[in-house]
Amino acid sequence: MTTISNTISTASVESRSGRRFVTARRVRAALVAFLLPIGLIATWWIASDRGWLPEQILPSPAYVYSTLVEMIGSGEILYHAGVSLRRVVTGFFFGAVVGLALGMGMGLSQRIDDYVRPLFLAFAQIPTLGWIPLLMLIFGIGETLKIIVIAKGALVPMAMNTSAGIRSVPADLVEVGHALRFTRWQTLRLIVLPGAAPAVFTGIRYGLTHSWTALVGVELLASSEGLGYLLVWGRQMFWLDVVMVAMIAIGLIGFAMDKGLDVSENYLQRWKHGEAD
């Protein structure tokens, strides 16, 4: 009985030590991650304070912060961020759905892959922003143009990663499904898709990142609202504080979306981490 108690006590101490180690490691990683931004802000502050560049070109951090507070209070930055987020969610949804279907087709069928992949790779080599002049002629500069450009940004990484993920599923697992007399749907649902899930999540993350950058690009060229429009408007009016506020908003929203997907992926695949432990 004493031996069992000692074993449980030792395991409890080791568990607490492990949790403390993980917490300390995360805190240290967070502190290291903040070193570069803090250094850049300090350099920016010194440069503006000593007048290394004119204030019209390099406004002080305090001035940019006051502009940010003012734009949040007036609701201006929130309105433009909301417009951009609505566009990116809509375009990403359509692009991800089409990319997922296309990637599954190329991954599951060699015939579809042989027919589609050469043209698809040629399509993928053209940068997303390179399609804007042609799409402008066809769809104008309305919301349809923006949604198509954003969808294209999501479609390519989604299709490529889904196809690669499906093809990376071990053949032994598929053979197990055949031995258990799974139907094609059961094999797809229980073996192929779970095996391809990491690659699909990678496609989602890359697709969302490409969609966000494509959104900003198309708003720079053809929009009267949104964060990309704020960049152009601030540059035209030579309000560099507004430009910097828009850049900060774009960076923070993009980081938050990527971090949210990272947390979701880790949560949905917690079984995988449990096996590794």
Score class of each variant (00 low, 15 high):
residue 199 A to C: 09
residue 62 A to D: 11
residue 157 P to L: 02
residue 272 K to R: 15
residue 82 G to Q: 03
residue 73 G to S: 13
residue 189 R to M: 13
residue 20 R to W: 07
residue 123 F to A: 03
residue 97 V to S: 12
residue 232 V to T: 13
residue 108 L to E: 06
residue 224 S to N: 13
residue 118 P to C: 02
residue 166 I to Q: 08
residue 139 F to Y: 08
residue 150 I to S: 09
residue 239 W to G: 07
residue 258 D to K: 05
residue 199 A to D: 12
residue 131 W to A: 01
residue 254 G to R: 03
residue 90 T to R: 02
residue 261 L to R: 11
residue 179 A to V: 00
residue 226 G to W: 07
residue 235 R to C: 06
residue 60 S to R: 07
residue 196 A to R: 02
residue 53 L to P: 00
residue 187 T to C: 04
residue 94 F to I: 10
residue 200 V to T: 03
residue 222 A to R: 04
residue 243 V to M: 15
residue 54 P to H: 06
residue 261 L to I: 15
residue 27 V to G: 10
residue 252 L to N: 00
residue 250 I to T: 05
residue 188 L to R: 00
residue 55 E to A: 15
residue 93 F to H: 08
residue 137 L to A: 15
residue 173 L to F: 15
residue 177 G to A: 09
residue 101 A to I: 15
residue 112 I to A: 14
residue 271 W to T: 07
residue 234 G to C: 09
residue 196 A to N: 02
residue 45 W to C: 05
residue 110 Q to E: 13
residue 234 G to V: 10
residue 106 M to D: 01
residue 145 L to T: 11
residue 114 D to Y: 07
residue 216 V to P: 00
residue 4 I to W: 00
residue 130 G to P: 07
residue 243 V to Y: 13
residue 55 E to L: 07
residue 217 G to D: 10
residue 44 W to C: 10
residue 217 G to M: 05
residue 121 L to M: 12
residue 28 R to Q: 09
residue 159 A to C: 11
residue 201 F to P: 12
residue 271 W to P: 07
residue 262 D to V: 01
